[in-house]
Nucleic acid binder design. Structure first.
Lengths: 193, 193
DNA sequence: TTTAAAAAAGGACATTTGTCCCTGATGCGC
DNA sequence: GCGCATCAGGGACAAATGTCCTTTTTTAAA
């Protein structure tokens, strides 16, 4: 549930250190609860998270939110928009304090054109996203909420992060009421078993 | 709902025609209802659909299926598996008679390494898949079935294809019973409005 | 410590969806 | 045409989920 890409992080850190072009990459520090990227907006930077956690979510017209993913170390933001030259699909909001590299989009395009290692990392990243998104969509549609929630709690424990109930509900695509109800049901089962 | 990628189709057709390497690409004709690719299996070919329609679906352990996408002209099959060197995530089954190009995986890797135009097309394709998968997951989780179904019927009409009720239900992630019920509800509304 | 305000949790009811099973339609062999 | 088998459709009930609103808990201020 919390994605990371340490390979990409290493790449960008090396790039900043070694290359003369590294100076075009800015480092930013962002407080928790700040919207880094706004759905529908056009952005000119691609971000790579150096540290911290963000949530990437779609706000639907009916007022509901769906969290696509929680993004951590080494994850990239805005790459789809840069590749396809479209406005942002999602909102991205910081959950913790976040440090991120900001890469101007022309530099991003240049990297793809000239740096095969970067392109390979990017291909891997996109592949992983498709796999995870598809797998999750299937899982959430076809299993009971109780099963999905228990799996989510487990993942959260493993990742050693704390996600608010509201965010977990948005990740599962359900109301907070259902979330609470199912949580209680799970707790009761654990007591009994 | 029915994805196509005419750019990729053009590319591969030109590649077969012009290059000396084109001869390594085989053309296959497959009858309807045949499973091209089996979940969990390892494949050594990447397919690009020249003509016809397939469905790409995940079979969950609880016996239910979830259709990720319907793939048409120019769509590629097995690219994630080749890129990440993993067993197949999905089943892919022909719905109509299908003609497809079969590309050995070593040739696919070679193309990525040596042909920037191909890589660019691939990046675009992967991006599109992420966008569509995410958008759909959000939509299906947050809107009513009735809304989702009416949109699906509309898409089906536009694409001028016929999908079985069973497949549409699997695409929506619901039972056939719910599908029929909602369909009836929609029909009644159309009569009244 | 007390009280008011805000946030979180939960009860009650309506709606949606799944499951199970029956019914009626369709096709096929005789 | 008749009888049988098969399958799609739908009825009935159970389970899951959303909505609305009340109750409880937490927080902060006086």
């Amino acid at each position: 549930m919390l994605r990371t890409n340490l390979q990409l992080l290493s790449f960008i850190e090396a790039f900043c250190r070694d290359g003369h072009e590294g100076s075009k990459v800015m480092q930013k520090k962002i407080n928790p609860g700040i919207r880094l990227v706004q759905q529908g907006e056009t952005i000119t930077n691609i971000y790579i998270i150096k540290d911290g956690i963000t949530k990437c979510y779609i706000s639907e017209e009916n007022g509901k939110d769906f969290i696509i993913e929680f993004l951590g170390k080494g994850e990239v933001i805005g790459e789809l928009e840069a590749l396809k030259k479209i406005p942002c699909l999602c909102n991205v909001e910081t959950i913790s304090e976040v440090t991120a590299y900001a890469i101007p989009d022309y530099l991003f395009s240049e990297l793809i054109a000239k740096n095969a290692a970067f392109t390979e990392i990017l291909l891997q990243e996109l592949s992983t996203r498709i796999i995870q998104t598809s797998t999750r969509a299937s899982f959430q549609q076809l299993y009971t909420l109780e099963y999905g929630l228990s799996k989510l709690l487990q993942l959260q424990k493993e990742a050693q992060i704390t996600i608010s109930k509201e965010d977990m509900a948005a990740y599962l695509g359900i109301s907070v009421r259902s979330f609470n109800r199912t949580l209680k049901a799970l707790e009761n089962k654990n007591l009994l078993s």
